[in-house]
Every structure is written in structure tokens, then in C-alpha cells.
Design a protein around this nucleic acid. Structure first.
Lengths: 140, 140
DNA sequence: CCAATTCGTACTCTTTTGGTACTATATAAG
DNA sequence: CTTATATAGTACCAAAAGAGTACGAATTGG
């Protein structure tokens, strides 16, 4: 079944938690420990996800004592394509797309070589059109 | 990385092969053996994929001697959402979606419960808008 | 009846994913 | 300057999913 990884699932929960906190408490930096307690997720996993998000500049990280993480954009400026790319890597619906050197070992027989791109573009744009704030609608 | 399974990849290649053959030779039934030779794919795998496609009524199967498979619809009536469902199972972007009983073991803490559905609908409709004949454009 | 062909199930091997642990690095406070 | 508190990076292991194969059952035409 086509499905997102749990990492992406966690990422959305974590981002939603951060967005709520920043909106409610005007706190700039939040540590991984606090987020883990708030979301009830295991801390090492939370830490891993936060690291991935920081690497893509979706969130900001500050080292040292009193450090932590903070959102880099408003929730409605964060789209799902970006989040998924951070946690799962590039969005490509088949192995043929990202390997420019050769389609596959049967390239000479592959009658649809390179024809996956329209499908990929359709999917990516569908994901880009969903923002974090839309995912948070209906939150208590 | 989000990606389709090889089964889906094979399915499209096989369907394209069948479509070309039916269009060129006016042959109704084609055996798994012939398709395997034509696509250069291993026969057991081809057989497996054909079975999956037949189960979803994308293609027709006829048993017995002189039996085989044939397309059930015109290539432009076969969309990718249907094919992917046949080979990979239901399209759902998170484990939360298909389990109606409970979201996950942290449901009480999950602030975005049920909010994946808009994303799923966007993806499915993107996949429905790509037909097999569109995938075959540019074929030699 | 016999040959050809699909159907269904089960099994094994490989790859990916999820989760954890450990060490290094950076920063603020005393 | 030292220490406490954070993040950063890497590596590792167990569990799950995926890919491929094999074998027997069922069906149909000659």
C-alpha cells in the first residue's frame, strides 16, 4: 500500500504542537524534551524528526543551554510536500525518475520510459496545495 | 522515499504491451508466457501482476487451453489510481486512515486525527486524472 | 483423457524502516 | 573558565514489508 512513513506522521504532529505553543505562549525556543512530553512521543524519535525538519529549514534550531527549536514560517506557509521531502526524501513515484543515468536494467525494452513525470508532477502539486494549518483544522 | 512498488511499474509496462498488441494484431487473448517474452520480464512475476489486475477487473482472464488475458477497457479509460490500487492496495497516506476503530495508540493526544483525508483525496484525484494512454505517449 | 493455461497459497530472501544509543559540538550561566 | 544543557551526527540492531519463486488445484479445448 502506498503510504507515508511514521516519521512524516510524527512530523505533522510535532509541527502542530509547535504551532499551537508558539501561538498560545509566545515562546520562541522549545526543547525536544518538552515537545516529547507534550506529544507523548518517545524523545529519541522526536529528536530525530526535529533534526530532519531543521535540515530542510522548516524549523530553526538553536544550540546550547536554553536552546531549542522554533518554526521558521507561519503554519499556512508550510506545505506537505516540503514536510514529506524532509522526512521521507524526494517524492518520486518510481525508481526510474531520479536515476538520470539509466531508467532500469531493462531500459531498452521499457516502452514507457520517462513517462512517469506527469504523474509525479500531479502528485507533488497536490501535496504542495495542502498546508500545515489546513491539517490542523478541527483541532480542539 | 515515497515511491510506487515495482509491481506497479511492471503493471504499467504489461498493460502498455497488451494495449499495443490488441491495437496492432487484433488478438483477443494473450497468455502470460507471451507477455513475459515480449516485455523481457520474468514469467512468474508477470503472472502475478496479471492476476492482480484481473482481480480488479482491469483485464479479463480466460482459463484453459487457448486461454489468456485481454484488456477490459480502452487504454484511455484505465486510470492510474485503479492500477495502483490493484497492485499496491488502497491508496492511503497514513495508517490512521484505513483503521476505523482507532486512529493510533496515541489517539487521545493526536491533535490532527482524521485530518489526513483532504490530503488523500487530493492525491487520489491526481492519480485518477492520468490514464494509461497518457502514460504511453511518446512510445516508439 | 490429455495438454495448456490460469488461480491460489505458501515460502524464502532481501531491502527498507523504525527505534535507540553513543559521541561530538555549541552556548549560556555562574 | 568551567559546567550544565542543548542540538548534530553517526552507527547499529530488530522488526516489517517487498520481491521473487515454487508447487499444486482448477478449468477448458482438442
Amino acid at each position: 500500500m502506498i503510504k507515508l512513513s511514521k516519521m512524516t506522521d510524527y512530523a505533522v504532529v510535532i509541527l502542530a504542537d509547535m504551532a499551537e505553543r508558539q501561538n498560545a505562549e509566545k515562546i520562541e525556543q522549545t526543547s525536544a524534551t518538552v515537545i516529547a512530553q507534550s506529544t507523548k512521543l518517545p524523545e529519541p524519535t522526536v529528536s530525530k524528526v526535529l533534526k530532519l525538519l531543521a535540515r530542510q529549514n522548516i524549523i530553526n534550531s538553536t544550540r546550547g543551554a536554553a536552546g531549542g527549536y522554533s518554526l521558521n514560517k507561519a503554519p499556512d506557509q508550510i506545505n506537505m510536500a516540503h514536510v514529506i521531502t524532509a522526512t521521507d526524501g524526494p517524492i518520486a513515484l518510481t525508481a526510474c525518475v531520479d536515476e538520470s543515468t539509466e531508467c532500469c536494467d531493462r531500459a531498452q525494452n521499457c516502452s514507457i520510459k520517462g513517462q512517469w513525470n506527469p504523474l509525479n508532477r500531479a502528485m507533488i502539486s497536490a501535496l504542495e496545495n495542502v498546508s500545515l494549518s489546513e491539517m490542523m483544522r478541527g483541532t480542539r
